[in-house]
Design a binder for these strands. Structure first.
Lengths: 391, 391
DNA sequence: TTGTAAGCGTTATCAA
DNA sequence: TTGATAACGCTTACAA
């Protein structure tokens, strides 16, 4: 290591290039390139020598040069189009990102993360990234019911995977959930895969233009309903997140289906939408509890709103779970530190991120357009859910 | 826009280059380059024409080509070396990132985010990024008391800014905090700046090798002490975060200083360290409350632990703030949704991120090595702090 | 099996 | 004010 301090700061060490390696190994540049990229056309002996020299020199391919010569940029993009406020509170994104990274960094691929204000800016950014050749592909999060992004990305030819799934409900809600994968299954299990173009030509694929990785919100909601209905609840309200998001639509739809199947009154089992904030979660809770016949159970679409709701109940002296049961969609430290601890739908979010990244790599490798389903979440029953009060 | 669907997916549109612009505008490539980069050597007329054509074609400089020809990579790096578990719960990072982005994206600079397991991997990553020329600079977060990163980065000549400040306590803890900036000041106020090399040659700069952006944890802790001492508390424990982090050391040091200044008993006013998790926060709280003379006030180094602590108190039937006051270092939705709402130290985290990004840009522009101080946080008094019980 | 040379898209250095 | 032309570091035909 060179001497630290001012000198080092001003005069950085020169980075070695393949030319340096070629000279030192006594071969041509192309031989070096072949050797380092595991391509045929170079003897075992030369390959080994070149490798050793590269190692000695601490050589790493200049990413710009590699990208320029027709290769890949070696980076993927992820854009979050949510107000900064909403971002901070949710544990979801950083966990997703860390899962994505795990897969990408194993292949030496970088992740470009950008936080923008709205969907238009996001679309403009995709165009710029594409024009700049900055990324090889992107992960599209928070799919909407009416989403302009798949079409744009398909038109640009920028490989992409939609993370979070389609707006339409899953395969067929009426169909019995045959061989449901259990949440305790080893993580190495191949996730369920549908290849819309081949196996089910008649079924409309969720995003006909892009591969999709999604969670079966419909089944997850069914599990929650099973739990609450089983306890005896008949007045159940779902405080959902942003109305424009695809998974919000799926959850709302599923609640309806499940309510109908059990012959529950739709006026007493329904959804209301919010912006995911603690403020709107609390406000919605207050309104519900003020009603003539308040719900005996509330399902919140994220952990923050669930905790806010529990807090509103506490304020009013409504015992949880004595008079009100609470379920949080998505587990986090939050659900475990409140009192009582909240029953929550546990998802493997980093695992979901890994799956998404793998799928994106598959698309880049020329794999077929397909729809992959992540592990089904399971319901972790804690102290916030119990039998409803009599009456 | 071309037709969507399969065709578009397979045959992406070609990206325009300066060659295309040159041809269409009837000038040479170099003229185009000059025109587009605001360099002299081209007539107003030509410049305007070139600009218009570029606009029409939707041209964007190929980032790889630009990077290769000696220019900048147009990207900055940020590495988070924390286990994925710890990441999710804290609102801090995503907010910091969104602030950083705000500044970088205005200059069309991308942010590479990477999550790694440990410091060694982080250092290896810096080396790789440097060798790959992938980033123009990096933001170093979570500075440690004994940190290998500044020396490495200085030796590599990779521009960097340390976010979170030095291990040593601030300027001089004994010195009266003259003209403290109020938290209500407009955000446009120039932050306090120390240029160690010039103004204070005798004072040891925190990181002699890198520019630093930091918050004055010492003063912040003093504010918390002011609040609690003023209410009458004399037994105050600080449940700190990771012991190796610089700001943890600063806060612990400041607590000692403040305790001494007020003649408080060091056995009754002290710090304990944790890993920031709700589990350790709760565990530490239990131990403290089991003691013969438990503290009347606890200061937690993050919001998650504060909520966990409040939950422990609730479990044991210890009224907050009646018998125990609680302060959270860092505000978030969490502190506002619990019951009672928690008194918290409010920082402008996105603002801190903006400041860090600006400083990094300044370093890249050849600015001097310096230490910049962020806005001083303020204490938002809520219902979790009150007078201690008599005795 | 090896070396030579062209090209990727940009910036920068020259003459004209 | 312009327009060739040579880098930048890598990949990849193509020739030896």
């Amino acid at each position: 290591m060179t001497a630290p301090g001012e000198a080092a700061r001003r005069k950085p060490a020169r980075r070695p290039t393949i030319k340096d390696i070629a000279r030192r190994a006594g071969v041509s540049e192309s031989a070096v390139s072949f050797a380092l990229n595991d391509r045929p056309g170079v003897s075992q002996d030369t390959r080994a020598r070149v490798r050793r020299v590269a190692e000695e020199l601490g050589w790493q391919a200049n990413s710009a040069a590699r990208a320029l010569s027709g290769e890949r940029a070696g980076a993927m993009g992820l854009v979050l189009a949510r107000p900064a406020q909403t971002l901070g509170v949710e544990s979801f994104f950083l966990q997703l990102v860390s899962g994505i990274q795990e897969v990408l960094s194993a292949r030496q691929i970088a992740l470009l993360l950008q936080v923008v204000e709205d969907l238009d800016t996001e679309c403009a950014l995709y165009r710029r990234w594409w024009a700049e050749r900055r990324v090889d592909g992107v992960l599209v999060v928070d799919p909407r019911t009416d989403d302009p992004r798949p079409e744009l990305l398909a038109a640009l030819g920028l490989p992409a995977v939609v993370v979070g799934g389609p707006a339409a409900p899953g395969p067929d809600p009426a169909e019995p959930s045959a061989g449901e994968p259990s949440a305790t299954e080893p993580a190495t299990t191949e996730p369920a895969v549908t290849e819309p173009a081949t196996t089910e030509p008649s079924a409309t694929p969720p995003h006909p233009l892009l591969s999709t990785v999604w969670a079966d919100d419909a089944k997850a909601m069914a599990r929650i309903l099973d739990h609450l209905y089983g306890l005896g609840h008949r007045r159940i309200v779902h405080i959902a997140g942003l109305p424009g998001l695809a998974h919000t639509a799926r959850r709302i739809q599923s609640l309806r289906t499940e309510a109908d199947r059990r012959g529950l009154d739709r006026r007493q089992v329904h959804s209301v939408t919010t912006d995911y904030s603690d403020a709107e979660g609390a406000e919605a809770t207050r309104r519900l509890l003020d009603a003539a016949r308040p719900p005996t159970a509330i399902v919140y679409d994220n952990d923050v709103m669930a905790v806010a709701g529990a807090s509103v109940a506490a304020e009013r002296g409504i015992p949880v779970p004595g008079a009100l049961s609470i379920v949080a969609w998505d587990d986090s430290a939050l659900c475990r530190v409140t009192h009582p601890r909240l029953t929550a739908l546990v998802r493997d979010t980093p695992g979901f991120g890994r799956l998404a990244a793998q799928e994106l790599l598959a698309v880049l490798d020329g794999g077929p357009l397909r729809t992959v389903q992540g592990e089904l979440p399971h319901l972790e029953a804690r102290e916030s859910t119990a039998m409803p009060p009599p009456g």
